[in-house]
Nucleic acid binder design. Structure first.
Lengths: 367, 367
DNA sequence: GTGAAAGCGCTAACAC
DNA sequence: GTGTTAGCGCTTTCAC
């Protein structure tokens, strides 16, 4: 196997045609419409192409002409490499890749560093459409995507009126979880949540900040929690909510610590992701507390590691989300104008990290 | 945020220029060379663009003109979605994504289903270069990549004389592992390896098949093992090697079972990947044998799960491999003609799954 | 079954 | 600082 040449592109469709003494159309047909010319001629074309080191029609030129790139662009909130760190994101990617593969499309990961406002990468992506995965509603990259005259599907957030979307019912899902905790008897809880805005903020999130969150999913979950607990008379103003910018177990751990220091009386820590919950779990145990006897911890997502340690959480079909997003995008032909929305089912997973809170007496004097 | 229009592309650089009564160059400059025109004019151009719903220069047309796509293509052995299942592949992807991000390039995952011979996806990828990750030397997609007149870097396999490559010294790495087992006293071993050719084969791999393997990495490891054991007088012809096509823990488990049935006397199972080893571990334990007291098991890669369970293995820097491959490709300008090779360091990880074999007496009558 | 003509939308010299 | 010219390499009616 020898590389034809390392130098400058040697031959074009036109030069090949000239060499052969046929028209460009014929050469083009040899590649794209074999039935439009005699097998002999086609063979002659292809053979000469090999001899001249002609690599076949240039994909970019073809794209320009056909107005198809054969690729789907993916925009993520985070550094590209982050996408490979978060199991939920990896699951989503897998599903999306599956859908692309089925439709013979490539998947272009777009470098959209959230720290930078530079949206050039979005502008220069040669794609037939975009999938946007969980970005803040004021993300400049998202705005750039919306400007591109190609179909777009958003997964999770934001929820835009005109745009196809796939997601879950975040509110309903976490409400089910909240009711589970309420039934167990929890009244004093604390919350650890992911970033609520594009600017870093690590610490307590006031109710104002919560309701002003630029991440629709986080906002929906917090709102639903407040509603669920309001139903039993808990004043949400008194519920500590700790925000973390980085989505890591370390963040989850430090947030849990901060929470317990802020209000030692809480009997449960609700985390808006499994990653955060896993970190909280470690931290709580490091402090010598038992779960769930001393404190209850819950997550969200249903990643493998969570199930492995028996975390009480909400399982969402991340792979299906990716696949649904890809399908929606690649079926855009059928899009009859009105935006479509796909809501996937979630499932409460009652693990071993949630239990009934002990009474204050029990806490101090044993069961 | 409103999508300018959902209909057909409304404006082009030319129509914008006409509308403004300026030349196309000026409009182009407004986007690409702000310093080439007055700020006022630029503003007027951009404003009119917004008004007309002009989304900025078409990326494909620009690519055609500039001969740059701003993207790197990635070719994998497996279905795209597999890449997200294998932790080693995910690590590689992360590294590669990092390198691409640094260079403001996108990463295009190319759908190259190994079951199909259809290489159209390779032909239609608008990229500035390819990274090829661990494919068999007779892969038709690889051949298609080699035909494209763009730089290419291969990671792991195959090892082609003309092409830049990044990898590890597979032979040396596994030899170190082999010597470790030899020192522990193992003489009767069995091997579980990954696929050796493009066609499915699940079962024993003869020495001929081993040396004819289309996967350079597997071949190198098997050869090195045979050499290491030859040094102490072990006849490699007698060493059972079980091949598995699918790279899963299930495969590892069934292969281990097959191995033990084939030769109940083996005291160690060397697996050529952690995934296979993890599967072997489960199977062996399921059969009631203790590791390492009853049998020794080793892996290769150093994935998180392996370290978690204390697998004796070889750690290789998967993320660094991805990053190195990306850098090599994106630095191709500096490529002075002669192919470059980057070999990364590996490290023997002595975990808790390798120990001294018990004597036959001990096996039957206890220690 | 084959060819001629007409661009797809853009950028880069170079001249003004 | 702005415009003119000349393609980048290809596909696609539509005649022949």
């Amino acid at each position: 196997m020898v590389r034809s040449t390392n130098s400058r592109r040697p031959a074009t469709l036109a030069s090949l045609a000239a060499e052969l003494g046929v028209s460009r159309t014929t050469v083009s047909n040899a590649y794209n419409r074999p039935d439009q010319l005699s097998p002999e001629l086609r063979k002659r074309v292809l053979d000469t192409a090999r001899r001249l080191g002609y690599p076949g029609p240039d994909p970019v030129a073809r794209s320009l002409r056909t107005r198809k790139a054969g690729a789907v662009g993916l925009l993520l909130t985070e550094n590209l490499s982050y996408a490979f760190r978060d199991p939920a994101a990896v699951g989503f990617l897998e599903g999306l890749a599956l859908a692309c593969e089925d439709a013979d499309h490539g998947l272009l990961l777009i470098p959209a560093n959230p720290e930078h406002e530079d949206v050039a990468a979005v502008h220069s992506a040669g794609v037939d459409g975009f999938v946007v995965y969980s970005v803040p509603d004021d993300d400049p990259h998202l705005a750039a995507v919306m400007e591109r005259p190609v179909p777009t599907v958003i997964c999770d957030q934001p929820s835009l009126p005109e745009i196809d979307r796939v997601g879950i019912d975040d509110g309903a899902a976490i409400k089910e979880l909240a009711r589970h905790l309420i039934e167990l008897g929890h009244r004093k809880i604390g919350v650890v949540c992911m970033r609520l805005a594009r600017l870093r903020n690590d610490g307590p999130a006031s109710p104002e900040r919560q309701s002003r969150a630029n991440f629709h999913v986080q906002r929906a979950r917090l709102t639903a929690l407040s509603e669920a607990f309001a139903e039993i008379g808990v004043d949400w103003e008194q519920v500590p909510v700790i925000e973390r910018f980085d989505h890591t177990t370390e963040s989850g751990g430090s947030a849990a610590a901060q929470l317990m220091e802020l209000d030692p009386e809480i009997t449960a820590i609700i985390c808006t992701s499994d990653i955060l919950a896993l970190g909280a779990l470690s931290e709580v145990r490091r402090q010598g507390r038992r779960v769930p006897q001393d404190i209850t911890i819950t997550g969200f997502d249903g990643i493998d590691d969570a199930e492995r340690v028996g975390l009480t959480t909400v399982r969402q079909p991340v792979l299906e989300k990716g696949r649904a997003a890809g399908r929606l995008l690649l079926d855009s032909a059928e899009s009859s104008g009105k935006p479509r929305e796909v809501l996937l089912e979630t499932q409460l997973v009652t693990g071993s990290t949630a239990g009934s809170p002990r009474s204050v007496e029990e806490r101090w004097f044993g069961p």
